[in-house]
Amino acid sequence: MLDTWKKTKTIKEKPRMLRIEDKVLYHVLLSIAFISASFVIWIAIFISIRGMMPFLTDNGGLGRVALWQFLTDTVWLRGQTFVSTAYGAGFLVLNTLYVVFLSLLISFPVGVFTALFIAKIAPRKLAYIMRTAVEMMASIPSIVYGLVGAGVIVPMIYSSARVFGTHSSGGNSTLAVVIVLAFMSIPTMTAVSEVSIRSVDKNLEQASLALGASNIQTQFKVVLIAAKSGIFAGAILAVGRALGEATAVSLVAGNSRSGPNFGLFDITSTITSTMLQGLKETSGIDYDIRFSLGVLLMIVIVVTNIVLNVVKRKVGKLNGE
């Protein structure tokens, strides 16, 4: 209604009463929209403040948490809980980025190929079945993925660790986290890739076909390349989700207290899984430090997003987009 709204503002003959009513509505709506938009600022401000507290106050006589040590140390807590404040989360950042990167190695190709299959290659009925399947995967809550991870993947890893000549702590491992995260990301990857594959200009395809390329060659060498910026956007979205996933990861990670844990069969812990540890107490430094982890998580997500977006732009330019 915007067009007409703007125009009528200048029409003087409109009955006064009605115009006041409209103005009231406009301002009510504007303020509600303002509140909706402000939540993200609230989140940033309130969590940052609480997250900074452990570094600025003496935490009830325990002393400050050293910021540099928190950012770089390889042991979660040196000393006893509620006695020491020597927290370190550097290895958690590395672990988090590591598992997300590995999960992308699985979800990226699978997601892209599934999307190409649905959009271009599958017969219509099969495509419909696959699309429904992917939609279903997308709607499964993450805790269910965690449950399946703990019930299926973890025992499988436990028994297969022996085959590889190592052992794993009950199967809770980096590999389990990677697989759970990968499967959670596949629907996101697929959905976004499919949209961008579909939106590729038909002329490009036809030009390629006219030049004598086979259909499948066209799909791989023309359509996928043309859709790559959309596919990359899907990857960024998937990475964002995977970085922030908490409950599913915490069920299969094994929660190491020191790291970084790069071995596939070793237990691991991410920023989020550590935030969910030991929730019995709801006060004190061991509880408050979660907010610092939350701030760290937000920083990691924002930085990763920026870096990936820069990469995306570079990749786009390389092929003369």
């Binding site: 938009a37 939540f39 989140i43 935030m275 979660r290 939350g294």
Partner: peptide
């Protein structure tokens, strides 16, 4: 701003 809310992980909402 509203679009950004989609990208915030749910654990942060918990905080």
């Amino acid at each position: 701003f509203i679009e950004t809310l989609t990208g915030v992980p749910s654990i942060i909402y918990g905080l």
